[in-house]
């Protein structure tokens, strides 16, 4: 399986969740669920991360923060929105300070439902995201190869 071969590093940010999903994300890292056995490491540095796990809906003050973190992550990258708040705003949808789901600010690849999302579902979401990550990587590699051969072809003709 792709995720066993690779070692994806994840970055977690709490947009404006109630903490329920956050502690479940952390629970994934601890002995019972232990995602580190798949080589998944939780990092605090966006420049080291491949998978962006985000919980909670977007509010006025953190939309810039979320955008900033996303832009700092190197390509290819995938975003996993965890919990119903990250998908649509959830129970807080009608609050005056909530803009909505994460996809209002950055593109989301995988939505994990639930309030709070269970660790098993989070792991499943990350594994799905890794498939998408692999596709993106291949696409990038393909594009780079096309560019490279075009460059060579141009170089040979001159």
């Amino acid at each position: 399986m792709a995720f066993l071969k690779r070692s994806p590093w994840i970055l977690h940010y709490d947009a404006s969740s109630c903490n329920g999903c956050d502690i479940e994300v952390l629970a994934c890292l601890t002995p019972l669920y232990d995602v580190e056995r798949f080589g998944i490491i939780n990092t605090g540095n966006p420049k080291h991360a491949d998978v962006f796990l985000i919980t909670g809906g977007i509010n006025e003050q953190n939309r810039e923060v979320v955008k900033n973190i996303y832009e700092q992550m190197p390509e290819p990258k995938v975003v996993v929105a965890i919990g119903v708040c990250a998908a649509s705003g959830g129970i807080f949808r009608e609050c005056y300070n909530i803009v909505g789901g994460v996809d209002k600010v950055i593109p989301v690849d995988v939505y994990v439902p639930g309030c709070a999302a269970r660790p098993e579902m989070i792991i499943d979401g990350v594994v799905t995201a890794l498939g998408i990550l692999e596709e993106k990587r291949e696409k990038m590699a393909g594009a780079a190869q096309t560019k490279e051969s075009a460059r060579r072809a141009a170089g040979e003709s001159t």
């Binding site: 949808r93 609050c95 005056y96 909530i98 803009v99």
Partner: peptide, 16 residues
């Protein structure tokens, strides 16, 4: 000032 008594405009919710 979302709770202000003098705030103008209706429902501040943007997702209603």
């Amino acid at each position: 000032y979302p709770f202000s008594v003098t705030r103008r405009g209706g429902d501040p919710c943007r997702n209603a």
